[in-house]
Amino acid sequence: MIEFKQVVKRYPGGLDALRHVSVFIPRGSITFLTGHSGAGKSTVLKLITLSEVATRGQVLVNDEDISLFRGDRIALHRRTIGSVFQDHKLLPDKTVEENVALPLVVAGMGNRDCARRARAALDKVGLLKLCRRFPQTLSAGEQQRVGIARAVVGRPDILLADEPTGNLDPELADEIMKLFFLFNQHDVTVIIATHDYRHLNNPAAGLLALENGQISGDSYS
């Protein structure tokens, strides 16, 4: 589970992106994080991965205050999280399979296991046949699915997606969303930041609404 306690995030320049945010996200849940652009959605996700550190308050993951993590402990923490980005963040000089295998390589897994699990992950998102291609030869929807395969290949406890459907047309977006619900059924805690309101009425998902750095709606409380 993930818990924010009175979290304040102030970026250099003085602006408070989050102002005393307190939320509790249960283990195994799937949550939509919504709000207008600049509300602080990305900041919430970055605090969970420790890409940013809270200025005040606490971010707890499995009851541990992650802001106390340093050095390699941060790397280990990130290996329990899969991240999907709006712009995919795939490496252009590596094949699709190599991109997907990267989290496993980083974690010190042997080449053969890496390849096997990368292919399994690509199979789950329906792209096994493209494993030898390079990312820039793929469509936006395919690239996003490669990004998702990379996020889940390490069997993370938590899956974070920052506007994963932002660049996609509605049918593709629906397909991507289906994948997230699929992974959630395997006990992965999923948080999806989106301002695509079409998906928000899914009864299986929790909802967190942000407005100007504050919680304006919370289906968990």
């Binding site: 991965t49 390699d72 790397a75 280990l76 990130r78 963040k89 490496l91 990267l102 980083v106 974690a107």
Partner: peptide
């Protein structure tokens, strides 16, 4: 990206 997906400084 490597930093983001859990690569240590050594890596």
């Amino acid at each position: 990206i490597i930093d983001q997906i859990g690569g240590t400084a050594t890596f």
